[in-house]
Design a protein around this nucleic acid. Structure first.
Lengths: 237, 237
DNA sequence: ATGAAACCTTGCGCCAGCGCAAATTTCGCC
DNA sequence: GGCGAAATTTGCGCTGGCGCAAGGTTTCAT
Protein backbone atom coordinates (compact mmCIF):
# COMPACT_ATOMS: atom_id res chain seq x y z
CA UNK A 1 0.00 0.00 0.00
CA UNK A 2 2.47 2.61 1.15
CA UNK A 3 6.17 3.09 0.59
CA UNK A 4 8.65 3.13 3.49
CA UNK A 5 11.47 1.02 4.76
CA UNK A 6 10.95 -2.72 4.89
CA UNK A 7 13.48 -5.09 6.32
CA UNK A 8 13.81 -8.12 8.52
CA UNK A 9 14.54 -7.37 12.10
CA UNK A 10 18.27 -7.40 12.70
CA UNK A 11 18.49 -7.65 16.44
CA UNK A 12 15.62 -6.22 18.36
CA UNK A 13 16.05 -5.70 22.05
CA UNK A 14 13.63 -8.17 23.49
CA UNK A 15 13.33 -6.34 26.77
CA UNK A 16 11.29 -3.90 24.72
CA UNK A 17 8.62 -6.50 24.36
CA UNK A 18 8.42 -7.90 27.82
CA UNK A 19 5.98 -5.22 28.95
CA UNK A 20 3.65 -5.76 26.02
CA UNK A 21 0.63 -7.61 27.36
CA UNK A 22 0.08 -10.25 24.67
CA UNK A 23 3.49 -11.81 25.00
CA UNK A 24 4.69 -11.06 28.46
CA UNK A 25 4.12 -14.62 29.58
CA UNK A 26 5.97 -16.32 26.77
CA UNK A 27 9.44 -17.71 27.32
CA UNK A 28 12.22 -15.48 26.08
CA UNK A 29 13.28 -18.23 23.73
CA UNK A 30 9.86 -18.27 22.12
CA UNK A 31 9.89 -14.52 21.81
CA UNK A 32 13.23 -14.71 20.07
CA UNK A 33 11.91 -17.28 17.58
CA UNK A 34 8.78 -15.25 16.89
CA UNK A 35 10.71 -12.03 16.47
CA UNK A 36 13.23 -13.62 14.15
CA UNK A 37 10.43 -14.33 11.74
CA UNK A 38 8.95 -10.86 11.83
CA UNK A 39 9.35 -7.98 9.45
CA UNK A 40 9.44 -4.47 10.77
CA UNK A 41 8.23 -1.42 8.97
CA UNK A 42 7.65 2.23 9.61
CA UNK A 43 4.53 4.00 8.38
CA UNK A 44 3.96 7.72 8.03
CA UNK A 45 0.98 9.37 9.62
CA UNK A 46 -2.08 8.68 7.53
CA UNK A 47 -0.61 5.63 5.79
CA UNK A 48 -2.75 2.56 5.22
CA UNK A 49 -1.37 -0.63 6.73
CA UNK A 50 -3.97 -2.79 5.06
CA UNK A 51 -7.23 -2.28 3.22
CA UNK A 52 -10.68 -3.68 3.77
CA UNK A 53 -11.32 -6.67 1.54
CA UNK A 54 -7.68 -7.45 0.80
CA UNK A 55 -6.60 -11.04 1.26
CA UNK A 56 -5.09 -11.28 4.69
CA UNK A 57 -1.55 -12.25 3.75
CA UNK A 58 0.03 -10.93 6.92
CA UNK A 59 -0.90 -10.17 10.47
CA UNK A 60 0.53 -7.29 12.44
CA UNK A 61 1.58 -5.99 15.77
CA UNK A 62 1.70 -2.32 16.52
CA UNK A 63 4.99 -1.63 18.28
CA UNK A 64 4.69 2.11 18.42
CA UNK A 65 2.10 4.64 17.36
CA UNK A 66 -1.66 4.59 17.04
CA UNK A 67 -3.92 3.08 14.45
CA UNK A 68 -7.50 3.82 13.49
CA UNK A 69 -9.61 1.01 12.09
CA UNK A 70 -12.05 2.49 9.59
CA UNK A 71 -14.68 1.51 7.13
CA UNK A 72 -15.61 3.52 4.09
CA UNK A 73 -19.18 3.62 2.84
CA UNK A 74 -20.29 3.55 -0.79
CA UNK A 75 -20.71 7.31 -0.63
CA UNK A 76 -17.15 7.78 0.57
CA UNK A 77 -17.90 8.61 4.17
CA UNK A 78 -15.49 7.21 6.70
CA UNK A 79 -16.58 5.59 9.92
CA UNK A 80 -14.05 4.78 12.59
CA UNK A 81 -14.75 1.48 14.30
CA UNK A 82 -11.83 1.25 16.72
CA UNK A 83 -8.65 2.86 17.93
CA UNK A 84 -5.70 0.60 18.57
CA UNK A 85 -2.84 1.59 20.85
CA UNK A 86 0.72 0.30 20.71
CA UNK A 87 1.27 -3.25 21.92
CA UNK A 88 -1.74 -4.79 20.27
CA UNK A 89 -2.17 -7.17 17.41
CA UNK A 90 -4.13 -6.07 14.38
CA UNK A 91 -5.18 -7.51 11.07
CA UNK A 92 -5.73 -10.84 12.76
CA UNK A 93 -8.29 -12.06 10.25
CA UNK A 94 -7.21 -15.61 11.04
CA UNK A 95 -8.35 -15.31 14.63
CA UNK A 96 -11.88 -14.68 13.48
CA UNK A 97 -11.89 -17.23 10.70
CA UNK A 98 -11.64 -14.75 7.86
CA UNK A 99 -9.57 -14.79 4.72
CA UNK A 100 -9.63 -11.04 4.18
CA UNK A 101 -9.37 -7.97 6.35
CA UNK A 102 -12.77 -6.75 7.50
CA UNK A 103 -11.72 -3.09 7.64
CA UNK A 104 -8.95 -0.68 6.77
CA UNK A 105 -6.15 0.21 9.18
CA UNK A 106 -4.88 3.79 9.02
CA UNK A 107 -2.06 5.15 11.13
CA UNK A 108 -3.00 8.09 13.31
CA UNK A 109 0.67 8.87 13.89
CA UNK A 110 3.91 7.69 12.50
CA UNK A 111 4.00 4.06 13.59
CA UNK A 112 6.26 1.06 13.83
CA UNK A 113 4.65 -2.22 12.94
CA UNK A 114 5.84 -5.82 13.06
CA UNK A 115 4.26 -8.31 10.74
CA UNK A 116 4.25 -12.00 9.96
CA UNK A 117 2.92 -14.01 7.05
CA UNK A 118 -0.50 -15.41 7.87
CA UNK A 119 0.75 -18.92 7.25
CA UNK A 120 2.71 -18.69 10.51
CA UNK A 121 -0.47 -18.07 12.49
CA UNK A 122 -1.36 -21.72 13.00
CA UNK A 123 2.22 -22.51 13.94
CA UNK A 124 2.25 -19.83 16.58
CA UNK A 125 -1.07 -20.98 17.97
CA UNK A 126 0.10 -24.58 18.11
CA UNK A 127 3.62 -23.98 19.41
CA UNK A 128 3.31 -21.11 21.80
CA UNK A 129 1.13 -21.55 24.76
CA UNK A 130 -0.79 -18.46 25.62
CA UNK A 131 -0.66 -17.04 22.14
CA UNK A 132 -4.16 -18.26 21.32
CA UNK A 133 -5.59 -17.25 24.67
CA UNK A 134 -4.20 -13.77 24.46
CA UNK A 135 -5.36 -13.18 20.94
CA UNK A 136 -8.86 -14.33 21.73
CA UNK A 137 -8.89 -11.96 24.63
CA UNK A 138 -7.97 -9.19 22.22
CA UNK A 139 -10.81 -10.24 19.98
CA UNK A 140 -13.20 -10.37 22.92
CA UNK A 141 -12.17 -6.94 24.03
CA UNK A 142 -12.80 -5.53 20.58
CA UNK A 143 -16.16 -7.21 20.30
CA UNK A 144 -17.01 -5.53 23.57
CA UNK A 145 -15.97 -2.17 22.15
CA UNK A 146 -18.02 -2.65 19.03
CA UNK A 147 -21.03 -3.49 21.14
CA UNK A 148 -20.52 -0.42 23.25
CA UNK A 149 -20.30 1.78 20.18
CA UNK A 150 -23.54 0.34 18.85
CA UNK A 151 -25.32 1.03 22.10
CA UNK A 152 -23.92 4.55 22.20
CA UNK A 153 -24.91 5.30 18.64
CA UNK A 154 -28.33 3.88 19.26
CA UNK A 155 -29.19 5.62 22.48
CA UNK A 156 -27.09 8.70 23.07
CA UNK A 157 -27.19 12.29 21.92
CA UNK A 158 -24.29 13.72 19.99
CA UNK A 159 -22.95 15.61 22.99
CA UNK A 160 -22.81 12.47 25.08
CA UNK A 161 -21.18 10.48 22.33
CA UNK A 162 -18.43 13.02 21.85
CA UNK A 163 -17.88 13.21 25.59
CA UNK A 164 -17.64 9.43 25.75
CA UNK A 165 -15.28 9.28 22.81
CA UNK A 166 -12.96 11.79 24.44
CA UNK A 167 -13.03 9.90 27.71
CA UNK A 168 -12.19 6.66 25.95
CA UNK A 169 -9.39 8.29 24.02
CA UNK A 170 -7.76 9.77 27.10
CA UNK A 171 -8.10 6.53 29.01
CA UNK A 172 -6.62 4.47 26.22
CA UNK A 173 -4.06 6.85 24.86
CA UNK A 174 -3.95 9.78 27.23
CA UNK A 175 -0.73 11.42 28.28
CA UNK A 176 -0.61 13.28 31.56
CA UNK A 177 0.50 16.86 31.09
CA UNK A 178 0.42 19.81 33.40
CA UNK A 179 -3.14 20.72 34.16
CA UNK A 180 -4.85 17.89 32.31
CA UNK A 181 -4.60 14.84 30.11
CA UNK A 182 -3.77 15.18 26.45
CA UNK A 183 -4.62 12.81 23.64
CA UNK A 184 -1.32 11.38 22.59
CA UNK A 185 -1.70 11.69 18.85
CA UNK A 186 -2.85 14.32 16.37
CA UNK A 187 -6.61 14.24 16.06
CA UNK A 188 -8.75 16.58 14.01
CA UNK A 189 -12.36 17.62 14.51
CA UNK A 190 -13.04 15.56 11.44
CA UNK A 191 -11.51 12.45 13.03
CA UNK A 192 -13.59 12.94 16.15
CA UNK A 193 -16.71 13.34 14.06
CA UNK A 194 -16.02 10.08 12.23
CA UNK A 195 -15.64 8.43 15.59
CA UNK A 196 -18.94 9.73 16.89
CA UNK A 197 -21.03 9.73 13.76
CA UNK A 198 -21.58 13.43 13.56
CA UNK A 199 -20.16 16.36 11.58
CA UNK A 200 -16.95 18.25 12.13
CA UNK A 201 -19.04 21.40 12.58
CA UNK A 202 -20.92 20.00 15.51
CA UNK A 203 -17.73 18.72 17.10
CA UNK A 204 -16.15 22.12 16.66
CA UNK A 205 -19.10 23.83 18.30
CA UNK A 206 -19.02 21.41 21.22
CA UNK A 207 -15.31 21.82 21.79
CA UNK A 208 -15.62 25.59 21.62
CA UNK A 209 -18.32 25.53 24.24
CA UNK A 210 -16.40 23.14 26.45
CA UNK A 211 -13.34 25.31 26.13
CA UNK A 212 -15.35 28.31 27.34
CA UNK A 213 -16.48 26.21 30.27
CA UNK A 214 -12.92 25.19 31.08
CA UNK A 215 -13.46 21.51 30.45
CA UNK A 216 -11.00 21.13 27.59
CA UNK A 217 -8.28 23.07 25.82
CA UNK A 218 -7.52 22.47 22.21
CA UNK A 219 -5.29 23.63 19.46
CA UNK A 220 -5.11 22.40 15.91
CA UNK A 221 -4.99 18.59 15.99
CA UNK A 222 -4.51 18.57 19.74
CA UNK A 223 -7.02 18.12 22.51
CA UNK A 224 -6.36 18.35 26.21
CA UNK A 225 -8.99 17.41 28.75
CA UNK A 226 -8.72 19.55 31.89
CA UNK A 227 -11.80 18.37 33.75
CA UNK A 228 -12.50 14.71 33.02
CA UNK A 229 -15.14 14.59 35.70
CA UNK A 230 -17.23 17.21 33.97
CA UNK A 231 -17.08 15.08 30.83
CA UNK A 232 -18.25 12.05 32.75
CA UNK A 233 -21.21 14.11 33.93
CA UNK A 234 -22.00 15.15 30.38
CA UNK A 235 -21.64 11.61 29.10
CA UNK A 236 -24.28 10.35 31.46
CA UNK A 237 -27.25 12.65 31.81
CA UNK B 1 -33.22 -17.91 34.40
CA UNK B 2 -36.38 -19.42 33.11
CA UNK B 3 -38.36 -22.50 33.98
CA UNK B 4 -39.06 -25.26 31.43
CA UNK B 5 -38.03 -28.84 30.87
CA UNK B 6 -34.41 -29.71 31.41
CA UNK B 7 -32.99 -33.10 30.72
CA UNK B 8 -30.07 -34.88 29.20
CA UNK B 9 -30.56 -35.94 25.63
CA UNK B 10 -31.90 -39.47 25.53
CA UNK B 11 -31.38 -40.41 21.91
CA UNK B 12 -31.35 -37.58 19.44
CA UNK B 13 -31.58 -38.45 15.80
CA UNK B 14 -28.19 -37.43 14.56
CA UNK B 15 -29.35 -37.01 11.00
CA UNK B 16 -31.02 -33.92 12.35
CA UNK B 17 -27.67 -32.35 12.86
CA UNK B 18 -25.85 -33.28 9.72
CA UNK B 19 -27.20 -30.31 7.86
CA UNK B 20 -26.15 -27.84 10.50
CA UNK B 21 -23.15 -26.00 9.13
CA UNK B 22 -20.82 -25.98 12.14
CA UNK B 23 -20.65 -29.71 12.49
CA UNK B 24 -21.41 -31.17 9.13
CA UNK B 25 -17.80 -32.09 8.58
CA UNK B 26 -17.26 -33.91 11.82
CA UNK B 27 -17.26 -37.68 11.99
CA UNK B 28 -20.56 -39.15 13.10
CA UNK B 29 -18.74 -40.73 16.01
CA UNK B 30 -17.55 -37.35 17.20
CA UNK B 31 -21.01 -35.93 16.83
CA UNK B 32 -22.35 -38.74 18.97
CA UNK B 33 -19.82 -38.04 21.69
CA UNK B 34 -20.54 -34.35 21.64
CA UNK B 35 -24.27 -34.86 21.71
CA UNK B 36 -24.08 -37.34 24.56
CA UNK B 37 -22.65 -34.60 26.71
CA UNK B 38 -25.26 -32.03 25.83
CA UNK B 39 -28.34 -30.94 27.68
CA UNK B 40 -31.42 -29.99 25.77
CA UNK B 41 -33.96 -27.46 26.85
CA UNK B 42 -36.98 -25.69 25.52
CA UNK B 43 -37.54 -21.98 26.05
CA UNK B 44 -40.77 -20.06 25.66
CA UNK B 45 -40.93 -16.99 23.49
CA UNK B 46 -39.36 -14.08 25.31
CA UNK B 47 -37.37 -16.24 27.71
CA UNK B 48 -33.80 -15.29 28.60
CA UNK B 49 -31.23 -17.97 27.83
CA UNK B 50 -28.44 -16.09 29.54
CA UNK B 51 -27.88 -12.60 30.87
CA UNK B 52 -25.22 -10.03 30.20
CA UNK B 53 -22.51 -10.16 32.83
CA UNK B 54 -23.29 -13.64 34.11
CA UNK B 55 -20.38 -16.02 34.42
CA UNK B 56 -20.32 -18.10 31.28
CA UNK B 57 -20.91 -21.51 32.77
CA UNK B 58 -22.35 -23.04 29.63
CA UNK B 59 -22.25 -22.51 25.91
CA UNK B 60 -25.20 -23.12 23.63
CA UNK B 61 -26.37 -24.21 20.26
CA UNK B 62 -29.68 -23.10 18.89
CA UNK B 63 -31.39 -26.17 17.43
CA UNK B 64 -34.67 -24.53 16.57
CA UNK B 65 -36.09 -21.05 16.88
CA UNK B 66 -34.62 -17.57 16.79
CA UNK B 67 -32.71 -15.60 19.33
CA UNK B 68 -32.11 -11.88 19.73
CA UNK B 69 -28.92 -10.73 21.36
CA UNK B 70 -29.62 -7.55 23.25
CA UNK B 71 -28.00 -5.05 25.54
CA UNK B 72 -29.84 -2.96 28.04
CA UNK B 73 -28.69 0.55 28.85
CA UNK B 74 -28.64 2.17 32.29
CA UNK B 75 -31.88 3.89 31.42
CA UNK B 76 -33.54 0.61 30.55
CA UNK B 77 -33.59 0.99 26.79
CA UNK B 78 -32.94 -2.17 24.85
CA UNK B 79 -30.66 -2.34 21.87
CA UNK B 80 -30.58 -5.41 19.69
CA UNK B 81 -27.09 -6.25 18.53
CA UNK B 82 -27.70 -9.43 16.53
CA UNK B 83 -30.26 -11.96 15.43
CA UNK B 84 -29.25 -15.59 15.54
CA UNK B 85 -30.98 -18.26 13.44
CA UNK B 86 -31.19 -21.97 14.21
CA UNK B 87 -28.03 -23.97 13.73
CA UNK B 88 -25.65 -21.48 15.28
CA UNK B 89 -23.65 -21.46 18.45
CA UNK B 90 -24.26 -18.75 21.01
CA UNK B 91 -22.94 -17.69 24.34
CA UNK B 92 -19.48 -18.73 23.24
CA UNK B 93 -17.68 -16.39 25.59
CA UNK B 94 -14.76 -18.81 25.60
CA UNK B 95 -14.15 -18.26 21.90
CA UNK B 96 -13.49 -14.60 22.52
CA UNK B 97 -11.51 -15.03 25.68
CA UNK B 98 -14.21 -13.89 28.06
CA UNK B 99 -15.37 -15.27 31.36
CA UNK B 100 -18.83 -13.75 31.21
CA UNK B 101 -21.49 -13.23 28.59
CA UNK B 102 -21.16 -9.88 26.86
CA UNK B 103 -24.89 -9.54 26.17
CA UNK B 104 -28.26 -11.06 26.94
CA UNK B 105 -29.87 -13.71 24.73
CA UNK B 106 -33.64 -13.54 24.40
CA UNK B 107 -35.72 -15.99 22.42
CA UNK B 108 -37.79 -14.44 19.66
CA UNK B 109 -39.85 -17.62 19.35
CA UNK B 110 -40.20 -20.79 21.29
CA UNK B 111 -36.77 -22.36 20.89
CA UNK B 112 -34.86 -25.55 21.45
CA UNK B 113 -31.36 -25.13 22.71
CA UNK B 114 -28.52 -27.54 23.38
CA UNK B 115 -25.89 -26.61 25.90
CA UNK B 116 -22.62 -27.81 27.32
CA UNK B 117 -20.65 -26.82 30.38
CA UNK B 118 -17.94 -24.34 29.42
CA UNK B 119 -15.30 -26.66 30.80
CA UNK B 120 -15.87 -28.92 27.81
CA UNK B 121 -14.95 -26.14 25.40
CA UNK B 122 -11.21 -26.74 25.46
CA UNK B 123 -11.76 -30.47 25.08
CA UNK B 124 -13.89 -29.99 22.02
CA UNK B 125 -11.39 -27.60 20.48
CA UNK B 126 -8.55 -30.00 21.12
CA UNK B 127 -10.27 -33.24 20.16
CA UNK B 128 -12.48 -32.33 17.27
CA UNK B 129 -10.86 -30.99 14.22
CA UNK B 130 -12.85 -28.27 12.60
CA UNK B 131 -14.63 -27.26 15.77
CA UNK B 132 -12.27 -24.37 16.37
CA UNK B 133 -12.25 -23.27 12.76
CA UNK B 134 -15.99 -23.23 12.51
CA UNK B 135 -16.49 -21.34 15.72
CA UNK B 136 -14.01 -18.68 14.73
CA UNK B 137 -15.84 -18.30 11.47
CA UNK B 138 -19.00 -17.73 13.46
CA UNK B 139 -17.20 -15.10 15.49
CA UNK B 140 -15.83 -13.50 12.36
CA UNK B 141 -19.23 -13.37 10.79
CA UNK B 142 -20.66 -11.68 13.84
CA UNK B 143 -17.87 -9.16 14.01
CA UNK B 144 -18.69 -8.33 10.42
CA UNK B 145 -22.33 -7.83 11.32
CA UNK B 146 -21.47 -5.60 14.23
CA UNK B 147 -19.30 -3.50 11.97
CA UNK B 148 -22.06 -3.23 9.44
CA UNK B 149 -24.50 -2.09 12.08
CA UNK B 150 -22.10 0.59 13.24
CA UNK B 151 -21.68 1.90 9.72
CA UNK B 152 -25.42 1.88 9.20
CA UNK B 153 -26.14 3.68 12.43
CA UNK B 154 -23.44 6.19 11.66
CA UNK B 155 -24.34 7.05 8.11
CA UNK B 156 -27.90 6.15 7.26
CA UNK B 157 -31.26 7.73 7.79
CA UNK B 158 -33.93 5.92 9.73
CA UNK B 159 -35.82 4.88 6.62
CA UNK B 160 -32.74 3.25 5.12
CA UNK B 161 -31.88 1.51 8.35
CA UNK B 162 -35.32 0.02 8.70
CA UNK B 163 -35.26 -1.08 5.07
CA UNK B 164 -31.89 -2.70 5.59
CA UNK B 165 -33.02 -4.41 8.76
CA UNK B 166 -36.02 -5.90 6.99
CA UNK B 167 -33.86 -7.08 4.11
CA UNK B 168 -31.45 -8.73 6.49
CA UNK B 169 -34.25 -10.38 8.41
CA UNK B 170 -35.86 -11.86 5.33
CA UNK B 171 -32.54 -13.06 3.98
CA UNK B 172 -31.57 -14.69 7.25
CA UNK B 173 -34.88 -15.92 8.44
CA UNK B 174 -37.33 -15.36 5.62
CA UNK B 175 -39.96 -17.90 4.67
CA UNK B 176 -41.33 -17.87 1.16
CA UNK B 177 -45.10 -17.50 1.13
CA UNK B 178 -47.49 -16.74 -1.65
CA UNK B 179 -46.85 -13.29 -2.95
CA UNK B 180 -43.82 -12.46 -0.86
CA UNK B 181 -41.39 -13.42 1.85
CA UNK B 182 -42.43 -13.41 5.46
CA UNK B 183 -40.27 -13.03 8.53
CA UNK B 184 -40.34 -16.40 10.18
CA UNK B 185 -40.91 -15.30 13.74
CA UNK B 186 -43.17 -12.86 15.56
CA UNK B 187 -41.70 -9.39 15.48
CA UNK B 188 -43.25 -6.25 16.86
CA UNK B 189 -42.76 -2.64 15.77
CA UNK B 190 -40.96 -2.23 19.06
CA UNK B 191 -38.53 -5.04 18.21
CA UNK B 192 -37.80 -3.49 14.85
CA UNK B 193 -37.22 -0.13 16.44
CA UNK B 194 -34.72 -1.62 18.89
CA UNK B 195 -32.94 -3.16 15.94
CA UNK B 196 -32.70 0.11 14.05
CA UNK B 197 -32.25 2.57 16.87
CA UNK B 198 -35.46 4.46 16.39
CA UNK B 199 -38.91 4.56 17.99
CA UNK B 200 -41.82 2.22 17.49
CA UNK B 201 -43.84 5.19 16.26
CA UNK B 202 -41.50 5.91 13.41
CA UNK B 203 -41.37 2.24 12.44
CA UNK B 204 -45.13 2.10 12.47
CA UNK B 205 -45.38 5.16 10.23
CA UNK B 206 -42.86 3.73 7.80
CA UNK B 207 -44.59 0.37 7.59
CA UNK B 208 -47.93 2.07 7.07
CA UNK B 209 -46.51 4.06 4.20
CA UNK B 210 -44.82 1.05 2.66
CA UNK B 211 -48.03 -0.89 2.95
CA UNK B 212 -49.85 1.84 1.02
CA UNK B 213 -47.14 1.61 -1.62
CA UNK B 214 -47.51 -2.17 -1.84
CA UNK B 215 -43.99 -2.90 -0.63
CA UNK B 216 -44.96 -4.80 2.51
CA UNK B 217 -47.97 -6.28 4.21
CA UNK B 218 -48.14 -6.59 7.93
CA UNK B 219 -50.36 -7.72 10.67
CA UNK B 220 -49.74 -7.78 14.35
CA UNK B 221 -46.30 -9.29 14.98
CA UNK B 222 -46.02 -10.39 11.35
CA UNK B 223 -44.32 -8.70 8.44
CA UNK B 224 -44.35 -9.86 4.85
CA UNK B 225 -42.18 -8.23 2.22
CA UNK B 226 -43.87 -8.21 -1.18
CA UNK B 227 -41.38 -6.15 -3.14
CA UNK B 228 -37.85 -6.71 -1.86
CA UNK B 229 -36.39 -4.78 -4.76
CA UNK B 230 -38.19 -1.62 -3.77
CA UNK B 231 -36.68 -2.01 -0.30
CA UNK B 232 -33.22 -2.36 -1.79
CA UNK B 233 -33.82 0.90 -3.62
CA UNK B 234 -34.89 2.61 -0.43
CA UNK B 235 -31.97 1.20 1.48
CA UNK B 236 -29.49 2.75 -0.89
CA UNK B 237 -30.45 6.26 -1.98
C1' DA C 1 -68.84 -12.74 26.50
C1' DT C 2 -66.24 -9.60 28.70
C1' DG C 3 -62.41 -7.40 30.34
C1' DA C 4 -57.65 -6.53 30.28
C1' DA C 5 -53.37 -6.51 28.28
C1' DA C 6 -50.62 -6.11 24.39
C1' DC C 7 -49.96 -4.13 20.11
C1' DC C 8 -50.65 -0.74 16.43
C1' DT C 9 -51.86 3.84 14.23
C1' DT C 10 -51.97 8.72 13.60
C1' DG C 11 -51.83 13.71 14.50
C1' DC C 12 -49.20 17.63 16.07
C1' DG C 13 -45.50 20.52 17.69
C1' DC C 14 -40.84 21.02 18.55
C1' DC C 15 -35.83 21.02 18.50
C1' DA C 16 -31.11 18.80 17.98
C1' DG C 17 -28.12 18.77 14.82
C1' DC C 18 -27.18 18.87 9.81
C1' DG C 19 -26.18 21.43 5.48
C1' DC C 20 -24.49 25.40 3.49
C1' DA C 21 -21.56 29.29 3.39
C1' DA C 22 -18.08 32.37 4.57
C1' DA C 23 -14.45 34.06 7.41
C1' DT C 24 -10.36 33.10 10.15
C1' DT C 25 -6.38 30.80 11.99
C1' DT C 26 -2.50 27.70 11.78
C1' DC C 27 1.03 25.21 9.69
C1' DG C 28 4.39 23.72 6.36
C1' DC C 29 7.08 24.97 2.59
C1' DC C 30 9.59 27.41 -1.04
C1' DG D 1 8.39 36.00 5.27
C1' DG D 2 4.89 35.22 2.30
C1' DC D 3 1.86 31.78 -0.07
C1' DG D 4 -1.22 27.92 -0.19
C1' DA D 5 -3.29 24.11 1.92
C1' DA D 6 -5.36 22.29 5.81
C1' DA D 7 -7.91 22.92 9.90
C1' DT D 8 -11.13 25.47 12.55
C1' DT D 9 -14.88 28.62 13.84
C1' DT D 10 -19.37 30.61 13.56
C1' DG D 11 -23.85 32.10 11.80
C1' DC D 12 -28.33 30.85 9.95
C1' DG D 13 -32.18 28.30 8.26
C1' DC D 14 -34.34 24.01 7.72
C1' DT D 15 -36.05 19.37 8.60
C1' DG D 16 -36.09 14.39 10.05
C1' DG D 17 -37.71 12.13 13.38
C1' DC D 18 -38.71 12.20 18.37
C1' DG D 19 -41.95 13.03 22.30
C1' DC D 20 -46.47 13.30 23.71
C1' DA D 21 -51.12 12.07 23.45
C1' DA D 22 -55.20 9.83 22.19
C1' DG D 23 -57.71 6.30 20.08
C1' DG D 24 -58.17 1.85 17.66
C1' DT D 25 -57.56 -3.24 17.14
C1' DT D 26 -56.18 -7.93 18.20
C1' DT D 27 -55.45 -11.62 21.44
C1' DC D 28 -55.99 -14.15 25.44
C1' DA D 29 -57.58 -15.57 29.98
C1' DT D 30 -61.47 -16.35 32.78
Amino acid sequence: MTENTKKTLPRLDESLLTHLPPFSKLERRQIRIILDQASSRRYDEGAHIFEEGETAERFFMLLDGYVRVVRVTQTGEQVTALHIPAGQLLGIAKAIGRESYPATAVTATESIVLSWPTRLWDTFVADYDGFATETYKTVGHRVGELNTRIVELATQQVEQRVANALLRLISQTGRKVDDGIEIDFPITRQDLSELTATTLHTVSRLLSRWEKEGIVESKRKRIKVCDPHALVELAQS
